[in-house]
Structures are given as structure tokens and as C-alpha cells.
């Protein structure tokens, strides 16, 4: 019989489990019910008290805690996760995606003599467990199965609802870990200033800026300053996250006019991110399927484009407005600011 373990960690506030962890808990509960398998939930962090928030799951709760495990770091996180898996004797390990556990999941699987698969978006199968994942940057979808155990499965964020349950007094088993030798010290987080931050994973909306913003406009001129003001104005008014096409972020390397607040981290699509947001508005984007994967996981999609037949929009967006994005966004910003 399978034994399921969900691995969890705190979010950046240090006072709650990360959203991805809570999503993995939901996935674990669902899978345990379906397979009739025992469920354990493991926790890695400075203080195991947070495990009380999982009391209502009824799962076996295990923790590796202590100051050494407060910060994300390969050596300590890998040792902690390995210890939890061994303590739970897990055959299936569900891991929330995210920088912290994605860094160690494969190493943990190797240490356990098991296997790992990442970017899993769904768990299914009737006779045997099957996992759905993407290949070729979200362009080919596959359903896979593994005979080897333990099987470490890293779940993509946004694929399950976050677990919500009443906190209680949980019985948490502390798992002892011999502190591994490490040569790495985590010294902190470097982030853009609050008003310069344009990547907001929790935003409801993704605003996609395409290369058209920096191309010649009907008057034969380039209006990068206007484009920058309009885009930032929209982001301020809606608190949307900003994504961009590869061609636009690459322009910086060619000495062309480029929007000053864009970096490669904004890039979505082929060699960029495929973020999940409820809504997406693309502007001045052009391209075909390889680029469009950038909004594969966007719920409602609208586009403003001068070309109604463009591959970015046709069959990919719910609505395309054939119009000049400069004019529309200017008016939109004006209306949003009045609306307050």
C-alpha cells in the first residue's frame, strides 16, 4: 500500500504555511482518500508550532525544526526533507513547487533511492497513480506513471485549492536531523523597491506588454516614454503583474529603446515564466504558439491588437479589440483613476 507524505514550509511572513504548501495539502488529502492510503504531512522550518494549523487534516504530522532550518538552503533543506520522508516511510511524496523545495526535491529523491517528477499539474489514474505534466515549455502535455518508489511529485502552484481548516492542538512528531555540514550562508533577500516591483504572483491580473509598444507608431516615431508611462499607470491602477514577450525584453541587448522597468524576470513564454492569474490582458503582442504559452495558465484572456488574425489572439484570447493600445490604455488609466 502507498504511504503519502506532503512536505510543507512557511511563507515569507514566517507565520503561515506557504500557499503552495496548502495547495499540496489539499492534493494530499484528495489522493489519500482516493487511494485509501495513510497521509503524513511534514514541515520544515524554524518552529513547528505552525503545524497546529493542520490539526484538522487528521494526518500524521511530522516536523524538522530549528533555526538551522529557518532559511532556504540546499544542504539543510535536503537533509530535513530526506529525514521526513524516511520517518514517514513514504512511497509518494507531494512537494509544493516554489524556489525552496524545487531546489531540493530531485536531490531528496536521489538520496531516498527514488524518482522525482516536477511541474505536475494533475494526479489521476484508476489502477495506478498517473501524473500530468508539460514538456517542451508547456507545448506538449503528457500523462506519466512510475513503477519506482518513493516517487517524489512536485506539484505546480495553482493546480489545487489551498487547504483551509480550523487550527487545533496537533500532535507533531519531531524528527531529528543531524545538521549537515554546509559552506553556504544565506544572507538575505534582494528585491526591487516597492514601487519598481512589477512581478506580482498573487495579482488577479497579468498585463502582457508586447514588442509593439516600442515600435514605430502611425506617426512614424517611437514613443517609448509614453509607453512606459501608460504601462506603469495601468499597473498602479490595477495592481496587475507585468509580463512581457521575449522580443521586448531582449531588445535591451540590442541597444534599442527598451522599457526601463523590464528585465528578463518579466519574460513569459518560451524561455520565460508561465504564471497563473485569473485574468490576462495582452497589448501589442504578436506571435505564435511558442510565445503564447506564456499565458497558457491565464483564466480569462483579452487582447488589444491591430491585427485580429494574429496568432497570439486568434483562438487563444476570449476577446480581441482591434485598436491602438496607446489610445485604449490611456483612456483606461484615466477611467480607472477616476473610479479610484
Amino acid at each position: 500500500m502507498e504511504k503519502i507524505l506532503v512536505l510543507t514550509h512557511l511563507d515569507e511572513t514566517g507565520s503561515a504555511l506557504s500557499r503552495a504548501s496548502l495547495e499540496a495539502v489539499t492534493a494530499g488529502l484528495e489522493l489519500a482518500t482516493r487511494l485509501g492510503a495513510p497521509l503524513g504531512i511534514g514541515f520544515v522550518g524554524s518552529d513547528a508550532a505552525i503545524a497546529n494549523s493542520l490539526a484538522a487534516t487528521g494526518a500524521r504530522l511530522l516536523a524538522v525544526s530549528g533555526e538551522a532550518f529557518a532559511q532556504p538552503r540546499y544542504a539543510t533543506d535536503a537533509a530535513a526533507c530526506e529525514a521526513l520522508c524516511r520517518a514517514a516511510d513514504a512511497t509518494i511524496v507531494l512537494v509544493p513547487a516554489g524556489a525552496r523545495f524545487s531546489r531540493v526535491a530531485a536531490g531528496v529523491a536521489y538520496r531516498l533511492g527514488g524518482v522525482v517528477d516536477t511541474h505536475i499539474t494533475a494526479l489521476g489514474g484508476t489502477e495506478k497513480l498517473e501524473a500530468t505534466r508539460w514538456f517542451y515549455r508547456q507545448r506538449v502535455e503528457a500523462v506519466i506513471s512510475r513503477s519506482a518508489r518513493p516517487w517524489v511529485i512536485v506539484l505546480d502552484a495553482g493546480t489545487h485549492a489551498a487547504y483551509v481548516g480550523a487550527p487545533g492542538n496537533a500532535n507533531v512528531e519531531q524528527v531529528a536531523v543531524e545538521l549537515p555540514a554546509t559552506r553556504t550562508t544565506v544572507s538575505g533577500i534582494r528585491a526591487p523597491k516597492q514601487d519598481e516591483q512589477t512581478i506580482r504572483p498573487d495579482a488577479r491580473m497579468l498585463f502582457v506588454a508586447g514588442a509593439g509598444w516600442t515600435k514605430k507608431q502611425p506617426d512614424g516615431q517611437i514613443h517609448v516614454d509614453d509607453a512606459a508611462k501608460l504601462i506603469l499607470g495601468f499597473l498602479r491602477a490595477t495592481n496587475a503583474s507585468l509580463g512581457s514577450s521575449k522580443s521586448l525584453v531582449d531588445q535591451g541587448g540590442e541597444g534599442q529603446s527598451v522599457l526601463p522597468f523590464l528585465t528578463h524576470m518579466n519574460q513569459i513564454g518560451q524561455t520565460g515564466a508561465t504564471p497563473r492569474h485569473a485574468k490576462g490582458l495582452s497589448t501589442c503582442c504578436h506571435g505564435e504558439e511558442p510565445h503564447v504559452v506564456g499565458w497558457r495558465f491565464i483564466g480569462e484572456r483579452r487582447a488589444i491588437s491591430l491585427d485580429p488574425n494574429c496568432g497570439w489572439t486568434r483562438g487563444k484570447a476570449d476577446v480581441v479589440y482591434v485598436a491602438d493600445a496607446f489610445a485604449v490604455i490611456a483612456k483606461l488609466n484615466e477611467m480607472l483613476s477616476t473610479k479610484g
Binding site: E12, P72, R73, G98, A99, R100, T184, T185, V186, S187, G188, I189, R190, A191, P192, Q197, T198, I199, R200, P201, M265, N266
Partner: peptide, 10 residues
């Protein structure tokens, strides 16, 4: 790491 930020390690 998440949110367009970087973790700094030595």
C-alpha cells in the same frame, strides 16, 4: 525566488 526577487547566499 517568488515575486521577482532574489535570495542572496554566500
Amino acid at each position: 525566488i517568488e515575486g521577482g526577487r532574489h535570495q542572496v547566499s554566500v
